[in-house]
Design a protein around this nucleic acid. Structure first.
Lengths: 193, 193, 193, 193
DNA sequence: GATGAATGAGCCTTCATTCAT
DNA sequence: AATGAATGAAGGCTCATTCAT
C-alpha cells in the first residue's frame, strides 16, 4: 500500500511529525500509525513505546537541524561564525516549518524525555562552543552562556514564526548582535517602581 | 475535612497550578482534585469541564501577572516605560516561578483555548500600546510589533528560567534595549554559506 | 420563590411528569428538582429515593386516571359499562396526554417497581370486575381476562396516540367490541405457512 | 479464551439481547461486554458507541423478524395475507420471546434512535402494503392506517406476552379480524357520562 | 516482519444521595 | 423544613501495548 521501498522507521517519524504538527500534543499512536500507512501493531516493531517514538522524533529533528547548521569554520572571525549559525538555522527553520514547530512543541510541552533533550543538545556543541569562545574573548556581554544561547534560539524561532522576510531577518540579526555584544552603552537608569 | 474557610475555586486552581508544574501536561482531573483536597466529583461543581478549568487557570495567571505589571505611566519617556514593564514583569515571574512556568506551558502546548488566550491578551493591551507608540515614534528598529513584543516576553522568560540575579537582569535589559533601539549600526556583512 | 401555597410533593410530581414527558427516561433528580423550583436536596425530603419518586408518580397518575374512569354502574348492562369505561378512559387520556404518555413510559420501560404497578392496578379492580362478569356471562370470547383487559388498554392508548377524533373513536370502540364479543363468526381458515 | 470461532459482533449483540431482557434499560456496556465474554474495551472495536450498539441490536431484531414474516403472496386474498402475517409474526415472537421483548423495550423506552427505527420499519413495508390495500378495497373499517397497523402489532405482542396457546391464538386472530373488518354492526349507543 | 483484534487501566464526567448549615 | 456543596461509585469511552496468526 505505502510506497514499497521507503524505510519504515523514517516513514513513521515523518507521519508522526505531520500529525503532531496538525493535531497537537494529544495524538494517539493509532493516529500516527494510520498516517504512516502501517498497522497499529507495526509501529511497535520499530519503537518499543510511544515515548521512544517521541524521543526518536525529537532527536531526529534536532540532528537534522544540526546538520543544516553545520560546524562553524574556526578560521573565520567570531561575528562571521555567529552570523553563519544564524543564517543557516533561520534558513532551515523557514524551510522546515513543521519540523521546527514540532521540535519546539515536544520540548516545551515536556514530551521529549530529558535523555532525548540531552542527546539533541550534543549536536549543537559546536555552535555552543562559538559562544563560549566569544564570551571568553570578551566580545559578548557578561551573561551566562545558557542565557545567551537561549536568546539566539528564541530569536530565530520567533523570526520564523513571525515569517520575517530576508530583509527583516537581516534587521533581526542586528537586534541580536547589537544586543549581545559589548560595544553598546548600558541603558541609563533603573525605573523606579 | 479540608481547611474550612478557603474559597474552593481558588483552592482548586492553586492545586492545578501546582500539579501542572510538577507533573506536566498530562495531569488528570482526579490528580488535581486530590491535590486540592476535594473529591473527584467536587471539582466539577466549580468547573464544568477540564477545559474550563485549564482556561480559568490560564486567565487567572495571566491577569495576576498583568496586575503586577500595571499600567504604564504615559507621563514618562518611552524607555522608562519599557523598563518599567521589564522590571515588574521580571519581578513577578521571579516571585511566581510556578505560575510563570505553567502559563507558558498551557500556552505552548496548546492546552489553553483560543478564547482563553484572547482574554488573557486583553490584559496586556496597555503594555502592547507602549511598543506601538515607540515604534511609531521611530525609537525602535523596523520590525513587526508582534516580533518585538515576543522578544520582550521571551527574554524575560529566559531571564527567569536562567535565574539571573539583579545585576544580570540589568545587563539583560541592556541586551534587549540595545538590540531593539535604532541607535546602533547594523552588523557588517552577511556570512557566505 | 415558587408559588408559596402549593403543596411540595405534588409540585415535585408535576415537575417530574413534565420532564419525563419532554426528556425521556434518563432525567436526573437534579433536573426534576430544578423544574419543580426546589433545591436538589429538598426533593429527598419528600421522596427518600428516586425510585420512590418514580413509583409515587406512577401511582398518582394511575389513581387519577382511575378516578376519572370511576366505578361502573352495576345497574346498567354490560355493554354500557364497557362503553362507559372506554369513553371516560379515552377522554381522560386525551385531556391528559402528558400523564398518559409518562404512565406508559414508566410501565413499559420497567421503571415503575412491581409494587407500584400492583398498587396502580388495584385502582382498576372495579373495571376488571366488569370484564370478569362479562366473561362469566358468556358475552365475551373465551380468552384470558388479562388478555382482554390488555386489549382495551392498548386500543385506548393507541386511539389517543393516533389522535382519533370523536367519530373515529366511536368506530374504534366498534372495533374493540365487535372483536371481543361472541356474536361474530370466526374467521374461516388458518393460512398455510 | 472465548470460543474461538464465534463471530464477535453477533456474539455481542446476543449478549446485549440477553442482558437487556434480564436487567432492563439501564444495563452498562461493561455488563454487556462481560456477558459476551469480551473485555470492556473490545466492545468498542465493534460498536463505536453504546447508541450504535443499541441501534444495531434493534435493527437486527427487527430485520430478523421481518425475515420470519416474509413477503405476502399477492396472489392470495386479503384475509389470507393478513392471516399469514399474523401467524408468522406470532410464531416468531413466541419462539423469540427475548428478542421480541427487547425490541419493544428499545422502541418504547426511546432508546433506539429515530434512524434505527426508520430502518427497522423499512423491513415491514410489504406488510404495511397489505393493510393499505385492504383499506383501499373497503374491507377494513375506516380508521387511519397507523391505527390499524398498531392494533395488529399490539395484539400479537399481547398474545405472546399472555402466552396464548394455538387455540387461543386462533380465537385472538378472530378478535382482531372481526374487529377491523366492516361486516359488523356498529355498537348501539354512546354511554352517557 | 506485519497485522489488527484484544486488553484493561485510566480518563472525564454524571448523578443519586448525604449532611452541615 | 430547606438548602446546595460534597461525595464517590459508576458510566461511556480511549488508548498504549500485547500477541496470536
Amino acid at each position: 500500500m505505502a510506497r514499497p521501498k521507503e524505510h519504515k522507521p523514517e516513514t513513521i517519524l515523518l507521519a508522526a511529525l505531520s500529525v503532531f504538527h496538525e493535531e497537537g500534543v494529544t495524538v494517539s499512536t493509532a493516529r500516527i500509525a494510520k498516517a504512516a500507512g502501517v498497522s497499529n501493531g507495526s509501529l511497535f516493531n520499530y519503537f518499543p513505546t510511544k515515548q521512544a517514538l517521541i524521543d526518536a522524533l525529537y532527536v531526529s529533528i534536532k540532528s537534522e537541524m544540526a546538520a543544516a547548521v553545520g560546524e562553524p569554520d574556526h578560521a573565520k572571525p567570531i561575528e562571521h561564525r555567529v552570523r553563519q549559525i544564524w543564517d543557516r538555522w533561520f534558513e532551515w527553520a523557514r524551510d522546515n516549518r513543521e519540523a521546527h514547530h514540532v521540535m519546539n512543541l515536544l520540548h516545551q510541552a515536556g514530551l521529549a524525555s530529558a535523555d532525548a533533550q540531552a542527546v539533541g543538545n550534543q549536536h549543537f556543541e559546536g555552535s555552543v562552543a562559538v559562544f563560549d569562545e566569544a564570551l571568553a574573548a570578551g566580545v559578548l556581554v557578561d551573561l551566562p552562556i545558557d542565557y545567551l544561547g537561549a536568546l539566539v534560539q528564541q530569536q530565530i524561532d520567533q523570526a520564523v514564526v513571525s515569517e520575517l522576510d530576508d530583509h527583516q531577518a537581516e534587521v533581526a540579526f542586528g537586534v541580536l548582535w547589537n544586543g549581545i555584544t559589548r560595544n553598546s552603552n548600558p541603558p541609563s537608569t533603573k525605573a523606579s517602581q
